[in-house]
């Protein structure tokens, strides 16, 4: 059996730079979880079917189980561990916990990232637009209702806080 030679991989994750030695076929999911201890990124199938392993690459969602770590070099990666800053939850995370949107929580890290990219582009999505945006992220517990509630609530609060700021500054 021939062993593949390891390669040096440098990743920028949540603003930190990590350099690891890994086989060239190693997926980003494996590197994040097994080498960088970023276990908030989950795996449900490792075949690109459930999206539990979703992370952001330059702000866009990618499935880390279908992305080689080598491909992720030179990009800014965000995992769930990098979302709350200094222990302060984002409006989406806050709305998520209040709405009961996490039951078992296994889909939650990816779902939060997925919904956040929607809110970044569309500050006032309809319920249908929210459903469309998270359609690739499977949840087996909630029936998606409280997840959609959470995204809607977060969007409302974020809009209100922007309006407040505009009002204060003008």
């Amino acid at each position: 059996m021939s062993e593949t030679e390891n390669v040096v991989v440098t990743l920028n994750v949540n603003g930190e730079t990590h350099t690891v030695l890994a086989p060239p076929y190693e997926t980003l999911l494996e590197t994040l979880r097994e080498r960088l201890d970023l276990t908030g990124t989950k795996h449900g199938c490792e075949l690109g079917e459930c999206s539990a392993c979703m992370v952001l690459m330059d702000g866009e969602p990618v499935l880390s189980c279908l992305t080689l770590s080598l491909e992720a070099q030179g990009h800014a990666l965000t995992t769930i561990e990098g979302v709350a800053k200094n222990g302060v939850l984002t409006p989406l995370q806050q709305a998520y916990i209040e709405s009961g949107a996490s039951q078992c929580g296994y889909c939650t890290p990816a779902m939060v990232l997925s919904a956040q990219t929607l809110l970044d582009k569309n500050p006032s999505p309809t319920r249908q637009e929210i459903r469309d945006a998270i359609a690739g992220n499977l949840c087996r517990c909630t029936g998606y209702v409280q997840i959609v509630d959470a995204v809607e609530l977060a969007a409302k609060r974020m809009r209100e806080s922007v309006e407040d700021r505009v009002r204060r500054e003008t």
């Binding site: 908030g40 916990i97 939650t108």
Partner: peptide
């Protein structure tokens, strides 16, 4: 009364440790 679950924060921050997260 509707209340936030006591373990909810650990679920939205990725801090919750599942079986495969044990090293």
């Amino acid at each position: 009364k509707p209340r936030t679950k006591i373990d909810a924060v650990s679920k939205v921050t990725g801090a919750a440790k599942y079986g495969d997260d044990m090293m």
